[in-house]
Amino acid sequence: MRAKTRSRVAAKGKIQRARWSQVRLAPIVLLSGPEDLLADRARQLLRAAAQQQASDQQQEVEFSDLDAREYASGSLLSVASPSLFAQPRFIWVDHLEQMTDAFLSDAIDYIGQADPDVTVVLRHRKGVRGKKLLTAIRDVASALEVECAELKRDDDKQTFVREELQLAGRRIDPDAARALVDAFSADTTELAAACRQLVADVTENITRADIDRYFGGRVETTGFAIADAALAGQTAKALVLVRHAGQQGMNAVPIVAAIATKVRLMAAVCEVHASPQQLASRVGGAPWQIRRAQQDAARWNPVELGRAVRAVADTDAQIKGQSVDGGYALERLVRRLATRRIGS
Rank of each mutant, 00 (worst) to 15 (best):
V9I: 13
A11H: 14
G13W: 10
A18T: 04
Q22V: 01
L25Q: 04
L37W: 04
Q44V: 00
L45D: 11
L46E: 05
Q53A: 15
A54E: 02
Q58E: 10
F63E: 13
D67M: 10
R69N: 01
R69P: 00
Y71R: 06
S73M: 10
L76A: 11
L76M: 07
Q87C: 07
W92R: 08
T100S: 13
T100L: 06
D101S: 12
L104F: 04
S105Y: 02
I108M: 15
I108R: 15
D109M: 11
V118Y: 00
V121K: 04
V121M: 08
L122H: 04
R129Q: 09
R138M: 05
D139V: 00
V140Y: 00
V140H: 05
V140S: 03
A141Q: 12
S142E: 09
E145R: 04
A149H: 07
E150N: 09
L151V: 11
K152Q: 12
D154E: 15
Q158M: 14
E164C: 03
Q166V: 08
G169H: 13
R170A: 10
I172G: 03
A176V: 10
R178E: 14
A179D: 06
L180A: 07
L180W: 09
F184Q: 07
F184M: 08
D187E: 12
T189K: 05
T189N: 14
A193R: 05
A193H: 05
A194P: 08
C195N: 02
L198D: 12
L198Q: 03
L198H: 14
A200H: 06
V202I: 06
I206P: 00
I206V: 06
R213N: 12
Y214M: 12
E220L: 14
T222G: 15
G223K: 10
D228K: 00
A229H: 02
L231P: 02
V240H: 10
R243T: 08
G246K: 01
G249A: 08
M250K: 01
M250G: 09
A252D: 11
P254Q: 05
A260Q: 11
M266S: 12
A267R: 07
A268G: 10
A280Q: 06
R282H: 09
G284E: 04
G284V: 02
G285C: 03
G285W: 00
W288L: 12
Q289N: 09
Q295S: 15
A297L: 08
A297N: 06
A298F: 03
A298V: 01
A311T: 05
D314E: 13
A317V: 08
S323K: 01
L330V: 00
E331V: 08
R332S: 14
V334I: 08
R335E: 09
L337C: 11
T339E: 11
G343R: 02
S344C: 05
